[in-house]
């Protein structure tokens, strides 16, 4: 088990954001320690993706505070988030369909030659290396990602997040399109990265999978945090009732 007593890697405090009249995230506080996997659960539209998009720089919060390694962090763009070694696998995957896997993997961070030109061959070689590790069946390196299956696209997005030695990894439903075998590989990958000391936010609708992979789970409903529990303290039914009823049975008890 990871050490959850020291300074958290990430602290998000009292985060709020509204879109028009919709309060998508309403005063949520969560934290994440190094070597820990924190799961986010909740019904569709609960605000999970919105919350982590604030951390990844895609959205800017209306109010709240983010601390990284105990220091106040200002994240106003995806670039800022990258500077804090935050990598994200978005639910939508965020791939440019017309480009091939290497171009997507290195998008925004291209490898360049000494003359400043993009080094496609080097990027292709690096992509082959990481893909050989993550998904040995992946062969369509040079094809536009629009020609890939949903699962293959997902492995490109995962490779992109893993390649750059993130400290904080955000995975928004990373296994949604994956087959049994590939899902197992992602689970192994999460264990491996966790052992390396990364902090991981994981979003998924698969409660059982979450209980296996996560150290703690946080449940959201209608933009608010229902509760955060250590997985060994709760049963699958507890979690389900938190999601459905929006009440923490342990608090009621």
């Amino acid at each position: 088990m990871s050490d959850t007593t020291g300074t958290p890697l990430v602290e998000m405090k009292d985060i709020r954001i509204a879109f028009g009249g919709v309060q998508a995230v309403d005063g949520v506080s969560i934290n994440l320690h190094a070597g820990e996997v924190v799961g986010l659960l909740g019904h569709n539209g609960a605000g999970k993706s919105t919350l982590i998009k604030i951390l990844s720089g895609a959205y800017q919060m209306d109010s709240g505070e983010i601390r990284i390694n105990g220091e106040k962090a200002t994240i106003t763009s995806p670039r800022d988030a990258r500077d804090y070694n935050i990598e994200t696998i978005y639910q939508t995957l965020a791939l440019a369909d017309n480009l091939d896997a290497p171009a997507n993997l290195f998008l925004g961070r291209e490898l360049v030659t000494p003359l400043g030109f993009v080094d496609d061959d080097k990027m292709e070689a690096e992509t082959r290396k990481i893909m050989a590790r993550l998904n040995p069946n992946f062969k369509k390196i040079k094809e536009p990602v629009s020609a890939l299956s949903g699962g293959q696209r997902q492995s490109v997005a995962i490779a992109r997040a893993v390649y750059f030695n993130a400290q904080i990894l955000i995975m928004d439903e990373p296994t949604a399109a994956l087959g049994v075998h590939e899902t197992k590989m992602v689970a192994d990958l999460i264990q491996e990265l966790k052992a390396q000391g990364l902090g991981i936010f994981l979003i998924s609708h698969d409660t059982r999978e979450m209980l296996e992979l996560c150290d703690r789970v946080s449940v959201m409903k209608n933009g608010q945090l229902v509760g955060t529990e250590r997985v060994e303290d709760v049963t699958e039914d507890d979690i389900l009732s938190m999601i459905i009823l929006g009440k923490n049975p342990r608090e009621a008890a």
């Binding site: 670039r79 965020a94 791939l95 440019a96 017309n98 925004g108 360049v112 030109f117 993009v118």
Partner: peptide, 21 residues
């Protein structure tokens, strides 16, 4: 060049380009 790469990436998926910084 990076400029060219970003032009094509943005055309392919503006949101992805934005999220890639």
């Amino acid at each position: 060049t990076r400029l060219g790469r970003y032009i094509f990436a943005t055309g392919g998926n503006p949101d992805a380009a934005e999220l890639s910084g």
